[in-house]
Nucleic acid binder design. Structure first.
Length: 211
DNA sequence: TCCCCGATTAACT
DNA sequence: GTTAATCGGGGAG
């Protein structure tokens, strides 16, 4: 049977609940020319309402308006003057919750991804939020896409993850919420990933911001 | 208006 | 491990 598209109800739950559930599922991007790209989600982060690290924390602005809309839509933001990052809006309309899609494993359309990325190695295609957005040609123009009823991008049921690891979010100063989730041991997880493979700790390495 | 800095990446030493 | 690239958001003045 063909894979089912995740329904609106899947996204209409709290971010820390939806985030780990997205792991293993397949992000599919369809282009106007009929070509496609697909990748298995291997790393995500939850951003909730009342979360100082979330773009929604200080209220709605033109930039983050989509976050406050109904769940199941794509929220795309531009950062560091050159990168785009994509999220799935979750929770309830008006809340401002989302799940950042941080890394995925290429399954289909790797040639197109490589062309858009300017990189050939599979590990360099979707292993990071900025990389993933570029590989799937997602920018501000894709902000607000409907992941449930739209025809440009959606998420299909994939294989359930082996083991899910948890840790604090990358690049976020707040260190109490363990809202980063990834497939333990998966090679396509982004950097800022956990220490040595042999380490028992599931705590990810944190980028130091002050010497 | 000014100014700092970010949910990052790639290329350095 | 360190740092340049590059620019919009939003708080401060």
């Amino acid at each position: 049977m063909s894979p089912a598209r995740l329904p609106r109800s899947f996204y209409a739950r709290e971010a820390p609940e939806v985030a780990p559930d997205l792991l293993g599922h397949v992000l599919v991007r369809a282009f106007p020319d009929g070509s496609r790209a697909a990748a298995r989600i291997v790393e995500v982060e939850a951003y909730g309402p009342n979360d100082p690290a979330s773009h929604s924390f200080r209220g709605m602005t033109p930039r983050n308006a989509v976050m406050f809309g109904p769940p199941g839509h794509l929220y795309v933001y531009f950062t560091y003057g050159m990168h785009h990052c994509m999220n799935a809006v979750v929770g309830r309309a008006g809340e401002g919750a989302a799940v950042l899609l941080r890394a995925a494993e290429p399954l289909e359309g790797a040639d197109g991804m490589a062309a858009r990325r300017g990189r050939e190695r599979p590990l360099d295609l979707c292993s990071g939020p900025g990389r993933l957005a570029q590989a799937l040609r997602v920018a501000r123009g894709e902000d607000g896409l409907d992941l449930v009823a739209g025809d440009a991008m959606w998420v299909e049921t994939g294989s359930r993850p082996e083991s899910i690891a948890t840790g604090i979010r990358v690049g976020v100063h707040e260190t109490t919420r363990p809202w980063r989730f990834w497939l333990d041991g998966n090679a396509f997880v982004s950097r800022g990933r956990p220490g040595p493979p042999t380490a028992k700790s599931r705590t990810p390495r944190v980028r130091s911001t002050t010497p």
